[in-house]
Amino acid sequence: MRDREGRLATRKKARKRGPDGDPKRLTPLGYILRETWRNRSRTFFSITGIASLALLFILFSSMDKGLEDYFEDESEGVPSDESKELFKVKQVMDDWVYLISVLCWALMVLVVMNTATITVVERKLELGSLRAIGISSVQVSFLVIGSMMLIVAAGIASGLLASLVLIPLLDIANLSMLGGGLDLPLVYDPVSILNTILLGLGSGALGLIPPLLMIIRSSPVEVLRDAG
């Protein structure tokens, strides 16, 4: 029993060390991952928020694309009653799809800004100490950008994965509620995926501006004095 415990302890110790027996190196990415894990509950909520918005965006993009493709196919011949109804839906969608996109983007910016600002305020002493021991404000900003981009990437990836499951399911269910009894076509296309990724990157970049300005403008002396 004791031998087994000893072996486990040695294996655990070995994992924490490099192949040459020296302790493992600390890299900025390792630091970012550790800090993201430490604040995992906030990270989880931020990822969920971004994923939901990405899902909503891709859902509307797919509906828009579906209607566009439908009318391309139905452009010739006498329009049926269903296509007349769908045309009305398309007219509404044409206005709404932009509004929904802007809304998703604005909310994503808010999620990123909120999470990053809380992170910077909460870790004020830690970030101030890093600067005091010689890490430059650009490098400290890199650590904050890295952790937020990790959250945005995880959120967008989760949203896209969820949409991969949800959109075919909704297509099978005919979306009768959303289409007012109509068989609303859904088309999942690569442009929508690309737009969702761009939406995430854009909101990440914009949402990070205020917290980064906080870091650059803050003085490590003031932070350390406040903490003392």
């Binding site: 924490k16 302790p23 190196r25 600390l26 890299t27 900025p28 390792g30 630091y31 550790r34 800090e35 894990w37 430490r38 002493l125 830690e126 100490s129 890093l130 005091a132 021991i133 010689g134 890490i135 490098q139 350390l224 903490a227 003392g228």
Partner: peptide
């Protein structure tokens, strides 16, 4: 620098804290 309240990074181990100034 040595501070009164140590100012170590709570999520990093002792050896990682020593390595913080040179992580970049």
């Amino acid at each position: 620098f040595i501070f009164q309240f140590f100012n170590l990074i709570p999520s990093l181990t002792a050896i990682e804290n020593v390595l913080v100034p040179i992580m970049f």
